[in-house]
Amino acid sequence: MTSVGMTTKTLESLSLEFFQQSAGQWQSQRRYYTLNKETEPQEVESLITIKFLEQGTPELIELAKLHQLDNLEALVGGTKVTWSSNYTGTIRKPSNGSTVFGVWENKLYRDRGFATTEPVVATYYFTNPQTMCLRTEYNGSVFEEEIKLIGQSYRTRQSIISRAGQELMIGQYLEKRLEN
């Protein structure tokens, strides 16, 4: 699914503008709701750093190799996202990590997925220039995500995780920019 009348070039340009606007450091508060059982929502606080990547950067070349793309410079741009997360109200180890995203046409290539360390590919589209939507499928699960820029200082995200047509979890995020 893509926005009506949108060319691949326009879609790629929108994604690069979106990633440039997202670059910086963010404080993220999120909550995960498990839908198929009575479980208390999980709350997580994170510090997220988003770095914009130009076409041809070493991270994007490596990502193209990981996905076995014929043209190692096919990815027109992307981001590197690093995070440090702490679960609140529960005894879980802090989580630290990073992931690289690269754009080519209507695909968003990643070096890892939400629930796997294997490389994955999402299809993306925009409902407007400030709202990117992703759909990723692997291991029998579907991950749908909407990321919305709100002015210069806030982002919201919502993720819905499904398996066999049944929604299992919803993640809702509010992110506040700390610095560019």
Rank of each mutant, 00 (worst) to 15 (best):
L69N: 06
R30F: 11
T57N: 09
L75Q: 04
E54W: 02
N71T: 13
L72C: 07
N96F: 04
A74Q: 15
L72R: 13
T34L: 09
T39Q: 14
Y32T: 04
G89M: 11
G97M: 04
S84I: 09
A74R: 11
I48V: 12
S95C: 06
S95R: 01
L60I: 08
K80Q: 15
K37H: 14
P94L: 06
Y33G: 02
V100H: 03
I50Q: 02
Y87H: 05
R31L: 06
T88R: 09
K51G: 00
Q55W: 02
K65C: 06
Q55F: 04
A74F: 02
T49S: 12
T88H: 07
E43R: 08
L47W: 01
L72K: 15
W83M: 07
L53R: 01
V81Q: 10
S95F: 01
L63K: 05
T57Y: 02
L53M: 05
I50Y: 04
T79F: 02
Q55I: 05
T90L: 14
L53S: 04
L75D: 03
Q55M: 10
E59R: 05
N86K: 12
S84H: 08
D70C: 04
E45M: 09
N96G: 01
H67C: 10
N36F: 05
G89Q: 12
S95N: 01
R92P: 00
D70F: 00
T49P: 01
I48T: 05
E38V: 09
K80L: 15
V44C: 12
Q68I: 10
K37L: 12
T57D: 07
G89T: 08
L35W: 06
Q55E: 15
P58G: 08
Y87E: 02
S46N: 02
E38C: 00
E62I: 07
Y33C: 01
H67E: 13
I50M: 07
L60E: 04
V100T: 13
N96M: 11
R31E: 12
T49F: 03
G77S: 08
N96H: 06
P41K: 03
L47S: 10
P94C: 04
P58M: 13
E38T: 08
R30K: 11
